[in-house]
């Protein structure tokens, strides 16, 4: 029997010494690569639909390529600026960081809605595909996300934007980029921060899922720690969250981020019946746009 137990122990030892390097980090990103952006011509399913009144004049749509440097890991990433690039030096611009799914084609309707807030092309809107998304090179990572955010705002600065006209808006995954950048600005100091359906952190997600207070480091190196980063944000802050968010609980994620904000001004919009993905539509596009305009111009 000792031989058999020894054999089993050897098998167990071999099994246990298999490379213990599995991490779930890359699963944060649900990216889809593209050869070209199709925008209105895209057949990508949309969670929010808009009518033709939201269409953007073709001269106000500019695709740009940027170089993003993540500690030496350089990638060419792509963005779409909606507005008159020549007027960035005088316009107020919404820097929009999209969610995890797909690419900019998938979020094109959202960018159009923002470009219609307060009137057609009242504000410039800039959206980027993080590395690994759409046409952007590379693989998505959390540090790459922040590097890409820096690159985008650097481009806006190079085109004449000043920090007091920069509004940073993040949705879902994009709240990590938006919050982190606003808390730790490198190029321009944003004037205001808008977060829609933010997550608290990877640790909150882990605890929500398991009931037990397990460390998130058991599963992933990703932090996406909005709950901590928001504490550094002093700029006016607008928080939007669907009360029926079926993915990132408004209670454990959104309320936590809102509670941790200690800056000069905040407003909360808890949208009845809205889930994770449909806040603008359920709230009503006109209500949504009006609230954005009021916050941006206050």
């Amino acid at each position: 029997m000792k031989k058999q137990i020894l054999s089993i122990l050897i098998v167990l030892s071999v099994t246990c010494s298999l490379p213990s390097c599995l991490r779930l980090d890359s699963n944060l990103f649900n990216n889809i690569k593209l050869d070209n952006y199709l925008l209105d011509a895209s057949t990508s399913p949309q969670e929010i639909t808009v009518d033709t009144s939201y269409n953007i004049p073709s001269g106000f749509i500019q695709q740009v390529a940027l170089t993003s440097d993540d500690n030496g890991n350089k990638a060419t990433i792509y963005g779409i600026y909606v507005g008159d690039v020549s007027r960035i030096s005088s316009d107020t611009v919404i820097m929009y960081f999209h969610g995890t799914k797909g690419n900019m084609d998938y979020y094109w309707n959202r960018e159009k809605i923002l470009a219609n807030a307060g009137g057609k092309n009242r504000f410039g809107v800039f959206m980027i595909d993080y590395r690994g998304y759409g046409m952007s090179e590379g693989k998505p990572t959390e540090s790459g996300l922040h590097a890409d955010a820096n690159a985008a705002i650097e481009w806006l600065k190079n085109n004449g934007l000043a920090g007091d006209r920069l509004i940073v808006y993040g949705f879902s995954l994009g709240t990590a980029a938006a919050t982190y950048y606003t808390a730790n600005p490198t190029t321009l100091v944003p004037a205001k921060l808008i977060l829609e359906a933010p997550f608290g952190s990877a640790a909150v997600m882990t605890n929500d899922a398991t009931v037990l207070a397990l460390p998130s480091s058991y599963f992933t190196s990703v932090k996406v720690d909005n709950a901590e980063e928001i504490k550094k944000v002093q700029q006016p802050f607008m928080w939007i969250h669907g009360i029926n968010d079926d993915f990132l609980s408004i209670k454990t994620h959104g309320e936590l981020v809102y509670k941790n904000y200690k800056g000069v001004y905040s407003e909360a919009h808890r949208v009845p019946a809205a889930t994770h993905v449909n806040v603008p539509a359920v709230w009503g596009l006109d209500n949504y746009k009006a609230a954005l305009e009021a916050f941006i111009t206050r």
Partner: peptide
Amino acid sequence: MGVKSGLYCC
């Protein structure tokens, strides 16, 4: 859509 994807399911 937001982050309804792999990481959190996993």
